[in-house]
């Protein structure tokens, strides 16, 4: 089985306090740690699991700057066999279609029985790129996968719906599946693991080699003309409890007693 996984490197923002840059066009990424998009990490793990069960090879693809090679190395350490880096130059400011154009050109010539990627990336959160790619590659697809079972030419996917419900769908291979967090338990990557795969060459390409023009990607190719960022307003907001730690806990305990009916 030839499996292709598309991954993205993103700034890790879950625990960080974000600041908007002076131009208002983006956030200050100086102090932020870059890492693999969490959804894509689950996709890499799923790809390696499929390879372990059914044989074949995993190629991991990313579109990003030179630092993005880190996420490719991680994926190789997890068990991917080959890696492709599409250089970011020209793609800055792309919308989902622009990113999908880059991935499409790179992926269409790779042998692919199964293409996996995360449902969305934690920066823009479009949740579009995977399925646009599926449409252009003329592949059946399923998004929000929490379980994937392959039986010969058929793949059975459990899709996550709302309210603790799932649906089971069946599609024929080759197919594209976007995976939801929690689908598996991603293996740990050690420094040793990364060192073991250091001799695997990362193939690099760029928009020109892929045959894309500047009006298809980047700001020129984007459907968006302008973007203005702001911090969400607090609304009424919480009453922040103050005082010593003991005072705060005393007040909180009282609230829990009064409102929760605890003695």
């Amino acid at each position: 089985m030839n499996i292709v996984v598309c991954v993205k490197q993103i700034p890790e923002v879950a625990e960080a306090e974000l600041e908007i840059n002076k131009q208002g066009s983006g956030i200050d990424t100086e102090d932020l740690v870059m890492g693999i998009n969490e959804w894509d990490n689950y996709a890499v793990e799923e790809a390696v699991l499929v390879k372990e069960r059914h044989g074949g090879s995993v190629t991991v693809v990313t579109l990003g700057d030179a630092d993005s090679e880190d996420v490719l190395r991680r994926a190789l350490a997890m068990g991917a066999d080959e890696a492709v880096l599409i250089q970011e130059e020209g793609f800055e400011g792309s919308d989902a279609f622009g990113i999908a154009r880059g991935l499409y050109r790179a992926v269409k010539n790779l042998p692919h029985d199964l293409i996996l990627m995360g449902v969305q990336a934690s920066d823009d959160g479009w949740a579009q790129v995977g399925l646009i790619l599926a449409e252009w590659l003329d592949l059946p697809f399923a998004s929000l996968a929490v379980d994937v079972q392959i039986n010969g030419d058929l793949v059975s996917v459990h899709r996550e719906l709302e309210s603790n419900t799932q649906e089971k769908v069946e599609l024929s291979l080759p197919a594209l599946i976007t995976v939801q967090t929690g689908i598996n338990d991603p293996r740990y990557v050690s420094i040793m693991g990364i060192r073991k795969v250091r001799n695997i060459q990362v193939r690099e390409t760029d928009y020109e080699e892929l045959g894309l023009s500047e009006d298809e990607i980047g700001l020129g190719g984007s459907s968006v003309a302008s973007r203005t960022l702001s911090l969400p307003s607090g609304g009424e907001g919480a009453e922040i409890l103050t005082g010593t730690l003991n005072d705060i806990c005393e007040k909180t305990a009282q609230i829990i007693r009064d409102r929760g009916g605890v003695s």
């Binding site: 923002v13 879950a14 974000l18 908007i20 956030i27 989902a96 934690s122 920066d123 823009d124 959160g125 479009w126 949740a127 579009q128 459907s223 968006v224 003309a225 302008s226 973007r227 203005t228 960022l229 702001s230 911090l231 969400p232």
Partner: peptide
């Protein structure tokens, strides 16, 4: 996708959505 609201400005769409897991609001003029 995932828009909180949208308006029209001279027939051109503007949308409001969030990025970075809801930590930043973005107004996009298309």
């Amino acid at each position: 996708s995932d828009c909180l609201d949208a308006t029209l400005n001279n027939g051109i769409l503007e949308v409001e959505r969030q990025i970075y897991g809801g930590k930043i609001n973005a107004k996009l003029g298309m």
